[in-house]
Design a protein around this nucleic acid. Sequence first.
DNA 1: ATGAAAGCGCTAACAT
DNA 2: ATGTTAGCGCTTTCAT
Lengths: 347, 347
Amino acid sequence: MDGDPSLQPPARRSAGIRDVASLAGVSTATVSRFFNEPSSLRPDMRRRVDNAVRELGYIRHGAARALSMRRSHAIGAIIPTVDNATRANKVAALQKRCRERGYNLVLALSEYDLDLELQQCRNLIEAGIDGMMLEGGLHDPALYTLLEKRGIAFVNTSVYDPLSPYPNIGFDNRATASRLAEHLLDLGHREFGMIAGPRRGNDRASDRVNGVRDALRARGLDMPDERIVEHPYRVIEGRKGLRALMSRRPQPTAVICGNDVLAFGALIEAQALGRRVPGDLSIAGFDDLDWASQLPPGLTTMALPASEVGQMAADFLIDSLTGTALPRAVEVEVKLILRGSTGPAPA
Amino acid sequence: MDGDPSLQPPARRSAGIRDVASLAGVSTATVSRFFNEPSSLRPDMRRRVDNAVRELGYIRHGAARALSMRRSHAIGAIIPTVDNATRANKVAALQKRCRERGYNLVLALSEYDLDLELQQCRNLIEAGIDGMMLEGGLHDPALYTLLEKRGIAFVNTSVYDPLSPYPNIGFDNRATASRLAEHLLDLGHREFGMIAGPRRGNDRASDRVNGVRDALRARGLDMPDERIVEHPYRVIEGRKGLRALMSRRPQPTAVICGNDVLAFGALIEAQALGRRVPGDLSIAGFDDLDWASQLPPGLTTMALPASEVGQMAADFLIDSLTGTALPRAVEVEVKLILRGSTGPAPA
DNA sequence: ATGAAAGCGCTAACAT
DNA sequence: ATGTTAGCGCTTTCAT
């Protein structure tokens, strides 16, 4: 093998399908079938091609394949950031499932910016993705137009809305937040505060605020704007948020945080302020991160099945490409995890 | 515009370069130049093409472009997981810089498995990536062969080794771990323990262990195997690790953790065991995660400039493609962040 | 079951 | 400065 004593062994371009075909003594069509429909080849043909492929270290040329098949076997994903374990799990599950089914994942970040999201969408279309996972259901209308006009499969994730015209896989953030608030209402809390994530351009963040409001209103209570502070998802911001809320009068006895990272900060700041959790103050979050069960007194939170969503998104997108009929909206289960950070309202 | 009352408006395939060319009354070459070398067009030509592009909503076909240019404008990255904020920052910086320079990011996960990493490498090659970011310097030899034979640019990251034959951007994990150990030695500690990350197939994890050993040996001390426990990077595992170490005699007064997540668990478990930090026990980690400065008493840790590495990796790879001469190894600065979790050895 | 050959939608010589 | 046209490396009819 490699018997050609040519002058520049490293510079020769790598083997193409024609090289394989001629080495195996078959046509290029047969080599193509070897990869795409092996069962249509006679065993001996298959063996010959297989040997040639191995000998040459042949790897198909994806771009040529995509051009010819009008299918890139790439799935795109646009997410705000990756620096959140829940989302990381979703992306990991997405890429794993895509890989299992022969698809690659092209990742783009929107940084919670709808304009940037649209731009990234264009980039991914240019990259030729066959399907695209989005986060949330709030996007520039042009994004939907773009995708639909080009017949690119897509799915909104981490939101569930059976009435949406667009496919979605996730859960109802608003109802989920209501459940969390009800838990606290049942514990006797009447003075609520909320450390929300930035709501602009983020329907999950605003839905969570609205959900808490829903629950309070259903019991004749209200959560005025001054009881809501908005902070980026960072621990230090959770601390600031709690400090701000505790400076209002009357002070809240229950604080719901937009996610566990903010709750982490709130928990630490409560301790720094000398408030006992849950004796003086109950705190809850969303995500059920790794440490939520470990950090005393344990964080009450909503466990969001992120990797399930990622995997389902991959399946949904890839199935769409084969023309399978699929449900427009899929709801995944969110569990309320009760831990030590929430308790009866102080007397 | 769109004056053709045909029967299936949504089904018509999207505009190609020829459509743009004929609408603008120019050749396809001119349209191509409009995108790739706009300055070579006369202003009025540019305007005509621009209008046609807008009117048709034309987006270049990446696969066709890649096939023709022999360049996909895609960068691949294979990382173990994304569920770590430091790595998330690296990936975010990588994708951002790639995007700025007209490249897309194809992401693959290796799950700390060298065989899977090699497989993912093949997948990415098939996807046609022009360059590839790897994590660490320990890979299947076949991976290097594959990449070099095909002339794909690549770079090992989060490691620094000027003697390596392969390009790398990062820091010397071994030396960095030594610095951390020296800090504790200077505080008078003599009994060390280590909660390492899984070392199999992970040079960063094993280098950190070796670095701690180096520092101890330099002072005539030793760290026997039974003072090292190995745990996956999760909070609960950090707790288990500390419990295991504290069951040995003599007990360590200083525990160095493979990363901040493990250190988090160690911190919590120390508290659960009634040990005061740093009074009875000093704990340190790697990464300087978001909460490290917030969680009392503050975690002493090494701050790794992850996003700097991600950005430099993007620049290195893309610059390589243009034939720019580049340094083979780049070292980034790691800072020792002193906080409350480390203090003088108990008397 | 296998082969021959016509594209897929661009880019880049080369020509003007 | 702009146009003509031959590929890029596959897949997929259509023959056989």
